[in-house]
Simulated assay, not measured.
Amino acid sequence: MSAPRAARNGPTFRELAVQALSSVEHGYDLLAPKFDRTPYRTPDAVLDATARALRPYGPFGAGLDLCCGTGAGTRVLREVCGGRVAGVDFSTGMLARAREAAPEADWVRGEAHALPFAPGAFDLVVSFGAHGHFLPAEHPHLFAQVRATLSAGGHLAFPLAAPPRPGTAPYWSLLAFDAAMRVRNAVWRPPFVMYYRTWPLSGVRRELREAGFAVTLHPLPELGSREDGSPRCRLVLATKLPDLPDQAVSAGTP
């Protein structure tokens, strides 16, 4: 996702402003009819690179697109999964668009904080562009929910872009966006949680390991390199480790 701006044939500035002053759920219900024509929709290049990186670990059985929106991520699941393909989101408007685009998938309304699936229901969970909707304090419970949904040895995968270098225009742009959102949420209700700087790689790796995952990183070379040769984007692949006694007890506890 990128900082809000109008796109050709997409939502107007006024429509984006109304969304930003709504709750997260209602805001996405409003945006759903035009969502795929905004910069928020995950680019096909990112989806294709993710599928390529996942193929050596498959084929997988059942796959879930977490916070699926209009369902773009299920394109990856259909390429690498041989079983059930499902998407979960809390926006009825986004799910309606997803059903229109891919009626063969299972579209489920639900919260990421309380996933409505049986333990071990999926072999692969992917997520695209939803990270900013989760505050750091929510990460442990989110990862515990995903881990409980995965089968033994199952995987959670998501692309993660390298942060812009301090002092560059993109750095100041994201900093300004997050600052504006914090001011908005301090003075306006309901809150709209969407931040760009709450998902640092080092912290997320640590939290995933603490939640019972082994974590590996896979460059996505199709998406380019930075000046120092490091990748602009990596795939984070978290593999479920066997249960520890305390994890088995606490996985469903907020």
Rank of each mutant, 00 (worst) to 15 (best):
H155I: 07
G154L: 05
R182G: 09
L156W: 11
P170Q: 13
Y171E: 04
S173F: 12
A157Q: 07
A161V: 10
P164Q: 08
N185V: 02
R184W: 04
H155P: 00
P159Y: 04
G153L: 06
R184T: 10
R182N: 04
N185T: 07
H155A: 11
L142D: 03
F158S: 11
V187E: 00
H155V: 14
A162D: 04
L160H: 07
R165L: 13
G167H: 09
T168F: 08
M181F: 08
V146G: 02
L175Q: 13
V146F: 01
A186H: 06
L174F: 15
A180E: 10
A186E: 10
Y171G: 03
L142K: 06
L175E: 13
S173A: 10
A186Y: 00
S151E: 14
N185H: 09
P170A: 15
A169G: 05
A161I: 01
A152I: 02
S151G: 14
F177C: 08
T149S: 12
A152M: 05
V146K: 03
S151Q: 10
F143K: 01
A169R: 15
L175A: 14
A152N: 11
L142R: 01
A157P: 00
M181S: 09
P166M: 03
S173C: 12
G153Y: 09
S151I: 06
T168Y: 12
T168W: 09
V146E: 00
F158L: 09
A148V: 01
A157L: 06
A169T: 14
W188L: 14
T168S: 15
R182S: 11
S173D: 13
D178M: 08
S173R: 14
T149A: 15
